[in-house]
Design a protein around this nucleic acid. Structure first.
Lengths: 109, 109
DNA sequence: TGGTTATATCCGCATAACCGGATATTGTAA
DNA sequence: TTACAATATCCGGTTATGCGGATATAACCA
């Protein structure tokens, strides 16, 4: 069954919406450095454990992270480095936007 | 004023959430080909005009598109080609996921 | 088994996002 | 001006998303 263009856009949008939360973005960048378990992420994010777990559930459901149980911890791993690539590309847009605004405040050379 | 990391992530998430709708994704890919006015987009999307206009408003607010009035039309343009770059990167993830699933259904070589 | 730790899920509530018909606004041309 | 075309905004209703305390589940240890 070949997915229609609109079905692809639907999935594409779902993937983007998994990225559209500051906590989830923070989690993804943290996991890009190294796999981490829920306690470590909770510590790093300074957010309630249930909140972190909920966001991890969303990232899991979207396939952006994988996890394995290690004893009583659950360790999460970034599933695909391209996620960071895409986030970095978008961050580049923000960066340029910011520096353009900043330059308006500077005196002309 | 240097934005904090969490402020950046907030903006980053806002940018992603502008991408997290199938209609807006379709609009962005269409504008990547050429600038289009609202009527042309409405025709292309086969959606109510008010819906298209609302989505364009969101893309405008997020800075992903720009527009100029040409007579009584308003022509929209993709603001930054990197938007498509990021979308394509994410689409690559989807693509690989799909072909991985598909290969499970194929008989082994 | 009983207790403790790590994580996930539940729940009620608050906020945000989407939809599309109806209406307002803006521009053009007769 | 009046009429029409193109676009934006309003409105009310529905659905999705986020929050975090409380609770359930799973694994480990004594």
């Amino acid at each position: 069954m070949i997915p229609s263009r609109s079905e692809i856009n639907q999935l594409h949008a779902q993937l983007c919406s998994a990225l559209s939360d500051p906590i989830r973005i923070t989690i993804l960048y943290a996991l890009a450095e190294q796999p981490l378990n829920v306690s470590q992420l909770t510590e790093h994010l300074q957010a309630p454990q249930s909140t972190v777990s909920r966001h991890l559930g969303i990232l899991r459901a979207s396939g952006l992270v994988t996890f394995i149980r290690l004893g009583r911890q659950v360790q999460y791993t970034l599933a695909d480095q391209r996620t960071i690539e895409a986030l970095d590309t978008l961050r580049g847009i923000l960066h340029d936007r910011a520096s353009r605004h900043a330059s308006l405040l500077e005196p002309p050379q």
